[in-house]
Amino acid sequence: MKKTPKEKSTKSIKINQLAILIAVIALLTSVFPYIFSPKKVDLVYVDVNKLVEGYKRTKVDRKSFEQKTAVMQSNVDSLMTDWQDELKAYEKERSSMTKKELALKQELLQNKQQQINNYQQAVQKQIQEEDQKLTQTIINDINDYITEYGKNHGYQIIFGAQGSGNIMYAHKASDLTEEVLEGLNKQYNGE
């Protein structure tokens, strides 16, 4: 028996409806776990600047570093004051000095000024090197902690944002900064 065009059309519509129904069920089945399962954010980040500034070791080490820097700068200032006092004394006594004494005193003052300048440059270089070393030590502490934190919490990657545009936007749920900072400070305090 031959089917009429109307019967063929009805059968075709039923097959299409069945195909659509199967596609919808497949889609819902594949999407269901993502919609109703607890979500864990796979891409997370920390604000490195906040970690460095909020880390207790940073505050302790910076305070010690600033005290040491103040002592070094005080030594330079003391030498400069002595040199200026000698220069003032030279200006007062200059009229009573012979040419030879004047030349000798000028040379001594110039040499002393050069030594002070050299010392001041050496102090500034030492301060800069110690500041870089201090900062690197703190960064290493933070990096080590974040590495362990990531392993212990099952993260594949933790980005570091520094406010320079490397992460332009991220949902607040992706920000681990406060959680990491709290753990970092507990570790520093030996808790």
Rank of each mutant, 00 (worst) to 15 (best):
E86C: 04
S30M: 15
E66D: 09
Q67T: 00
F36W: 08
N75G: 09
V44C: 01
P5D: 14
Q67F: 00
V44M: 05
I13T: 11
K68W: 01
T10L: 11
A23G: 07
F36H: 12
D61E: 14
Q17I: 12
K50F: 05
K14M: 10
N16E: 07
M72A: 08
V52S: 02
D47S: 04
Y45Q: 02
S9C: 10
K63L: 02
I35K: 12
F32R: 13
L79Y: 13
K39G: 15
V24W: 05
K40T: 13
T58F: 01
D47K: 02
F32M: 12
V46R: 00
K11V: 06
K39D: 12
V24P: 04
E7G: 04
W83I: 14
D85Q: 08
D42R: 11
E53K: 05
Y45F: 12
I13C: 07
D42M: 13
D42K: 12
P5H: 05
K2Y: 05
K3P: 09
K11T: 09
V44L: 03
K14N: 10
F32H: 08
Y45N: 01
T81S: 15
F36L: 12
D47Q: 04
I20H: 10
K6Q: 09
M80G: 06
P33K: 11
K50A: 06
L28Y: 11
V24S: 05
L43E: 14
M72P: 03
I35R: 11
V41S: 15
P5S: 06
S30T: 12
R57H: 03
Q67H: 03
E7M: 11
K14D: 13
K56Y: 07
E53S: 14
D85N: 15
